[in-house]
Design a binder for these strands. Structure first.
Lengths: 110, 110
DNA sequence: TCTAATACATAATTCTCTTATGTATTAATC
DNA sequence: GATTAATACATAAGAGAATTATGTATTAGA
């Protein structure tokens, strides 16, 4: 991503929507999926991702399931009912935001 | 604006594009124009706007002209040649950002 | 055997914006 | 005539979200 500033504030939206579309996922998997979907333009850093996941879990937006793969820990995250509704809300907010910005910047979205 | 977080990183883009479209403007006028264009959804605060204008001026992106209206000072800002090119760049970056986000969030933009 | 990839986590720092505060003029309302 | 709202600038303190840095550890590949 050329302008990382723009990404600020979108992390929760991204995480929630990706989890909504792909079901339960673990942290590293989320980073890879987002990298893929964005064609390497959005690279989620662990320093931002993990604290966000922990926060959303603490708020009851996400629920977790810890799995052992041999000796390695893998922590799966999934949306709770509340999380699903928040995911919808966040995406709608983002769409509103884009529409508003398009008016201000006077750009057409194809 | 319901989610002010999303606005982070867009201030420069907004200021540059509005100045590009409307020619020389003073700070307060920019806040009003943005408020109008966004139908009251984007309210630029002075604490963010003025430091940004000063910074862009110091960087040679904006040039200023101070006018006295009776006893009141009014400071007009306009894009320099460099500013015009930066405005174009920032808007393109924003469009790219929207496209990337649309892929990740799997939303259609009408 | 070494390096890269996988997989988690947290702390220090940076950056941008909000909130608060300050000054001052002008227009509108009571 | 006095008060309030709007106009118009400016800066400082604080908050919030991310980056960068660091740490631990396993697994796969060269």
């Amino acid at each position: 991503m050329h302008s990382p500033e723009l990404l600020k504030g979108t992390l929760q939206t991204i995480v929630l929507k990706v989890l909504k579309d792909h079901g339960k996922m673990y942290g590293y998997e989320i980073t890879q999926r987002v990298k893929e979907l964005s064609e390497d333009r959005i690279i989620l850093t662990e320093g931002a991702l993990y604290p966000t996941l922990h926060k959303l879990e603490a708020e009851g937006i996400l629920k977790t399931e810890t799995v052992m793969l041999g000796k390695r820990v893998r922590k799966y995250y999934a949306l709770t009912a509340e999380g699903k509704s928040l995911a919808r809300e966040r995406v709608n907010e983002f769409i509103d935001f884009i529409k508003t910005m398009s008016s201000v910047l006077q750009v057409e979205l194809s």
